[in-house]
Each structure stands twice: as C-alpha cells, then as structure tokens.
Write a protein that binds this DNA or RNA. Sequence first.
DNA 1: TTGTATGCGTTATCAA
DNA 2: TTGATAACGCATACAA
Lengths: 343, 343
Amino acid sequence: MSIKRTVPTLHDVAVKAGVSTATVSRCLNFPERVTVGTREKVAKAVETLGYSPNFGAKAMAARRTNTIGAIIPTMENAIFARGLQAFQEELRSHGYTLLVGSTSYRPEIEEEQIRTLVGRGADALLLIGHDRDPEIYKFLEAQGVPAIVTWAYDPAEFLPSVGFNNRTAMRDMAREVLRLGHCNIALISAKTEHNDRARGRLHGIQDAMIEARQNPEDLRVIETSFGIENGAKAFELIMSSQRRPTAVFCGNDVLAVGAMRSAKALGISVPNDVSIIGFDDIELAQVADPPLTTVHVPHREMGQRAALALVDMLRNGVPLTPIELITKPVFRGSLAQVKASLD
Amino acid sequence: MSIKRTVPTLHDVAVKAGVSTATVSRCLNFPERVTVGTREKVAKAVETLGYSPNFGAKAMAARRTNTIGAIIPTMENAIFARGLQAFQEELRSHGYTLLVGSTSYRPEIEEEQIRTLVGRGADALLLIGHDRDPEIYKFLEAQGVPAIVTWAYDPAEFLPSVGFNNRTAMRDMAREVLRLGHCNIALISAKTEHNDRARGRLHGIQDAMIEARQNPEDLRVIETSFGIENGAKAFELIMSSQRRPTAVFCGNDVLAVGAMRSAKALGISVPNDVSIIGFDDIELAQVADPPLTTVHVPHREMGQRAALALVDMLRNGVPLTPIELITKPVFRGSLAQVKASLD
DNA sequence: TTGTATGCGTTATCAA
DNA sequence: TTGATAACGCATACAA
C-alpha cells in the first residue's frame, strides 16, 4: 500500500506555470484564446505534474458533461453489444463519451441505473424498450435529462423511439412459417413481463395465426430467462410434450441456438423433424448448424441513428422524433416445409 | 425541446423539509444518526422533489467515489463480458459501482480511457493484460489510483495480476495436440503487438513444439483482428496453401468458430480433414458443430477474485497480491488424431 | 441530534 | 490576453 499522494490540481499547474487558474483552464479548453508562450508554459507544467482534470468538478462548474448514458438489459450477449458499439462510435466522433449500465432484465435495477447515470451527469439517456414505470419519466423530466428508446418503435409511447416494430417484424416471419404448412407451433419467449419487445413478438405470431385462420390460443408459449442454457431447457420441455410442434419460434437468437443444441442432443433433426426460428440475426445465427432462420435487425443503424438524434438535439436543439427502421426475415437452413404426416 | 428546468439540490430538500443541508446529507448517508422524525420529513421532501444526488459534487466533497473502472478490449464479444459480469456482481455486493470502457484493442484508446475513468474518479482500475506503455503506470501512481491486471498472470510484471498463464495454458493444450500426431500445424492469432496474452499463447505452442522436437519456426502464424469474419478469412488463407496443416490453433474461440464456419463453406471436414482448437471456452464453443476443443478459462472466478482483491485493498488496505488461476484443456469433437497420410 | 461554515477543483463572469 | 472571484452541490469538522 503506497502512501496516497495528493493529486495535482489546476491550481498546482497554475503555480508551476506562473499563471492563474483561469488561464490554465482556458489553455486546456480554448487554446486559441491564449498566447503561444503561456500555452507552452502551461503544457509543460501539465506534463511534468501529470495533471488530469477532475471530471466531477468540471461537470459541476460547466453544468454539462458531454456524456451520454445507455442502459441495456445485459452485456453478456452480442445482441445489444453490436448496436451499442455503433452508438458509441458515433458519439465518440462527436466528442461525447458513453456510459453503460446493465440491468439483468430487472426493472428495479434499471431504475437504479437510470438514477446512477443521471447522478453522474449524463446529458441524455438511451433506453431499451418502452415498458417501465411512468414515475421514471417524471424523474427524467424533473432532472431535465432527455431520453430516447431503441430496440422498439412505437410513436404512441411517451419517449421517442428509434427502432423497429417488434410485432409486425415477427408477424411477417410467422406468415412465412405458416405458409410452409406449420399448424402446430410453439414459442420460446423471453419473459414478457416488463418487456414490450417480447410481448410484441408474441403477439406478432398470434396475428399471423389469426390471419391464417388458426386459433392463437393454440400457440404453446414457454417463457424463460435469457441464455443458451435456458433455451435448451425450454426446448427439451416443449419436445417432451404429447404432440410435438413442427416449428419452434424463439424470442431471440440466443434462445434459438440453445434450442438447436438441445435438438442435437435429443437426436431431433432440424429442420426435418422440427423447424427453429430465431430473432435478431446476430453472428451466432450464421454459425449455427444448420444456419438459423431469423429476423434481421439493423443493429448498427439503430445505434448510429439514435446517437445522431441525441447529439443533434443536445447540440442544436433539434427535437427527438421517432424513427422507424425495417427488419427482414432471413431464411436459412433451420426452417423447412412441414412434412406430410400420418394423422 | 422542453424548457430546461433546474434540478433539485440538497439545499432545496433542506428547505422543503425545514432542516439544514447537513442534516439532509446525514439522512441520506447515515440514516441512523438522525431521529426518525426528521428522517421521515427529509424522505418525503426527497420524494416529492425527485431529488437525486449530484455525483460530481459528492465525489469532490467526499474525495472518493465508490466506483471502480474496468477497461476491456471489446464489448462486442462474450469473452470479456462473462468475467466482467462476475466482476460487477461482486463489486455491487460491496457497494461499488462499475464503470466500463472499451478500447477496440488500440493502445491509444486504452490510454485515453484510463485517463477518462481516472478523471471520473475511479477509486481503482481493472486492466486486461500487462503490455502497455510504462508511462501509464507513472500516471496511475501520480494519481494514486491502484490497478490490477486480469486475463493474464505474471508476478514479474509491474501490476499485480489475477489471472492465468497464457503461455503454459496454451502449451498444455498444444502438447495434447502434438501427441495426437499433428506435425503440421498453424495458428490464427490475434494481433500480437501490444498483446501479451496473444504472444503468450503463440509461445506456448512453440514451447510444446520444441518439447516434441519439432521446429517452432514451422508453425505457420496468421495474425488477424478480432471477429468471426476475420477467423473465417484467415482459415481460408491457410487452407489455400500448398501444404495444408492438419491442425489449426486459434487464439480465441471467436476466431475458431469463424474458422469452422469457413471449413464448412469450403467443404473441409472438421475434424477429419483438419482439427480446430480454440481458447477461452465461451458458450459458443459448445454450440459449434462439431463442438470446439478449447482451453477453459475460469472467467467468472477471475472477475470475482479481482473484485474481491480490489475491494479488500480499498476498504481494508490489504495490498494487492498476484493470484494465479488454472486453465484446463477441454476436448470436444473438433480435435482428432492425425490420419495416416500418403507421403 | 442538529446547524454553521468551509473546502473540494473547475468554469465563467467581469475587470483590468 | 490575463487575473480575481463567485458559483456549482455536497460532505464534514466543529460548535451548539
């Protein structure tokens, strides 16, 4: 344990350079407003002292942080990472820093994270989905922190969203699946409570069923937590039933890959015995064997446009407006026409 | 664009509750030192005002943040996410908050991120690997910010590490591979510049080659950036050569999965035509087809123990000491004995 | 148990 | 172009 030395401050730099703190501050933030001579003196002092500005003090004095917060359900998966990466890159190019929080899909943790990031001075927030306690929106308004929602699109909701319509996205896929003759289908869904994306996807399938004159009640739904392992277990459960479905939808690619692993373990052939359909189109989908039929989501575009919208509003006061992005079913080996059966 | 209202402060709460700011502060930080009556008054004021403490001000006044920073190469992948998740959970249980930065494997960005997190008041830092400009260590010392390294173990290095020996880990795996008769091998490596883990893994293979009386120069090495796609391209390149290797090591599982995808596309059978070996043992490894032989890394234990060490030093002044964790080769379907050949 | 007063490191206003 | 100086929001030593 080393003695905790005292960290150099603006004042120390000022003394060392023989100028005032105001000059040092200007030197650092607006070099052009300072003569070359002083600039050099200050630069040298900064260098030898190893000075680094105190963010908290800076934020407090300047009343802005150039920081934007993002709160996602989990970092443990590529699903959000891709979009977030693009989000960050775009922010970075505009001089903003990204602060990330994760919630493990738990509303109370999301609330805590929102408070944390706001307390840390985030100038704006990126949130996933619309489904949360309205109290939070009151809080954000009271704090004057604008927020944008992504991974969903619903202009009727309180916050503006940059994303896609989960319901129609899944419906479009389901239509194709039903068209292939599947009339006994199941869904391995993420928990739908507090999750409008999961609910939208579920309803999308049911919409397609109704269109196809099937009874939406017939959709067998298993809700489970996120993870390959959970997808595998859910699939096992579904296939242990009396009347096995011919197609299993999954709320996301990770669950789908779990289902495929489970199918392999059980000796169930995909897509001969059962078709498996995912959602998201992460890299994993192409690596799976057979490659996964899934709904392609424009992750990167979503992140980038969300960032642009936020920066535009912060810098130029341009109001946030909803932006709808499109998704597209991607057909790969895991989906096949339903086989003629004997009953 | 709504009018930016002013955010409630401690002072506002104090006025509303009819007490002093000091009392409100105590109420929030040490509720037990305050009578129940005032506690309730303050709580109500906080509630109605929607008060949320200003982190910057708090950090400045208290001279600590209860925040620990972690800087990883990329969030785009499960490799670091798993360990980081455990790290965060452990920190959380001790009242610390995690701040994450990512570098895209670029040293200059890492340096920038270190400065950023330190400026934001991180009480300590978690870094990946040992290979960086010593100037950074001077900076950290000057700032009085302790740091710990993970994902590597080398007690001879400047910073204490909680991790594993990349070199012996890969060597142990390579021994087994060579034992199966492979004498024409290749490595798809991450960029070794500024990356001691990648270099260690490379050297580990060469160590095993020397033990087996092979010429380490014979190891064909392709360095590439992170990502499934890059792994696929590198594999293609390797297999387009005159004399194809019988075993291809990969610096990590992500590259390996890319290689496997490429093999499938090229009609090369794994493991009949070529064996593929990964490193890390992320979930992806089990999902691959065939399942990937790889080196298992105790991600979660690593994150957890790093967190404990940091908390223990911050809270109790316990000095950071290196901790070596063990890795283990995991044999799955992607590795096979070398076939009798005709030459 | 509660209040007063000071300082934390920076920016920004206003003079010089 | 530069320098004093007043905020900024909070914690804490000290006093009451």
